[in-house]
């Protein structure tokens, strides 16, 4: 019978021989708990620095759902604060009003912000749009993620603007980003494929940064477990309706057979962006005839969803 020690795979960082907790499939590296935490922190810092996501004096609104990605994002940003002069953090949680799901994640978000001493704002669909998502979705559940995404972006932008934020930080990870690239391609949605929300253009929008964009879901969950911040939370009941779940299954299959697929998709998108004139992305920006918010048509998507007269 093998002893526990002989069964352990060892960390391949030099010099280290601690038991590995994760294998990075694309590079083939094995990392122990210490080197895994360091790897996640370094990749986060490198992403922020390489893409110049944060400037001195920034007030960053962190989109905090209370789930794993936004929890990791807030923890990493909070830990990095001493290195950024004059930068402040606030957390914004959007309560969509999803029965049996959101209460628990909001509780987790509140606990985390209290523990870290971060100013926390909670905004709800009910107060902004006159109804919970459960009500607003009646009869169009198959479009749940699209509807929710549009309303959530507006809620987040409204709360961030009211709080005086200069950046919005989103917890999108490598898997999310790769899925989004593929979904935009499958939909033939070239403007969204090349649009870079971090650029701050058009000027009327607060730049949205994604410091976890090169970290996989596995790396993020492993990091949370190793740092004692992981908690199991319910899954959104609308997830199964989404095109995203089909794309996710397809991409994890490809990533298993061809490690590096997700990173390659993002690199391809970045290359396309570099070779695309900026005007090819978002169209001209004007004010919505109904609500006065910035949008690319006469009526914004939020007003269309809410059925406001056009």
């Amino acid at each position: 019978m093998l002893t526990p020690d002989s069964r352990d795979v060892r960390c391949t960082s030099t010099p280290c021989s601690e038991p590995a907790v994760i294998r990075l499939r694309d590079s083939g590296q094995y990392l122990c708990s210490t080197h895994c935490i360091r790897h996640v922190e370094n990749l986060f810092s490198r992403t922020v620095e390489d893409q110049r996501m944060i400037a001195p004096g920034d007030r960053i609104a962190v989109a905090l759902s209370g789930g794993k990605d936004s929890t990791a994002l807030l923890l990493l940003l909070h830990a990095a604060l001493p290195a950024w002069p004059g930068v402040t953090l606030i957390a914004v949680t959007v309560d969509e009003g999803i029965a049996g799901y959101r209460d628990e994640t909001i509780g987790a978000a509140v606990e985390l912000t209290v523990r870290l001493g971060v100013e926390h704002h909670i905004v709800s669909f009910a107060s902004l749009f006159g109804g919970d998502l459960d009500v607003l979705l009646k009869g169009r559940e198959s479009r749940s993620c699209t509807v929710c995404g549009i309303l959530r972006r507006r809620a987040l932008a409204t709360a961030a603007r009211q709080a005086g934020a200069t950046r919005i930080a989103i917890g999108h990870n490598l898997d999310d980003e790769a899925q989004t690239v593929l979904m935009n391609l499958l939909r033939g949605d070239f403007p969204h494929l090349v649009q870079d929300a971090a650029s701050g253009e058009p000027e009327c929008f607060i730049p949205r940064i994604k410091p976890l964009a090169w970290l996989s879901e596995r790396e993020i969950v492993t990091y949370l477990i190793l740092t004692g911040n992981y908690r199991e939370l319910p899954e959104c009941p609308y997830t199964g309706f989404a095109l995203r779940s089909e794309v996710r299954a397809m991409l994890t299959g490809l990533e298993f057979r061809h490690p590096g697929t997700m990173k390659n998709l993002i690199r391809s998108r970045d290359t396309i962006r570099q070779h695309t004139p900026r005007a090819s992305g978002v169209g001209s920006v004007q004010r919505c005839r109904e609500c006065g918010e910035h949008c690319s048509g006469e009526i914004c998507q939020v007003c269309r969803i809410l059925g406001r007269p056009g």
């Binding site: 590995a20 907790v21 492993t222 477990i225 190793l226 994890t252 990533e255």
Partner: peptide, 14 residues
Amino acid sequence: PVSVIVTRNGRLVP
């Protein structure tokens, strides 16, 4: 394996 992580007797393992 890309969609999960695994613990063996409570410890994370590749």
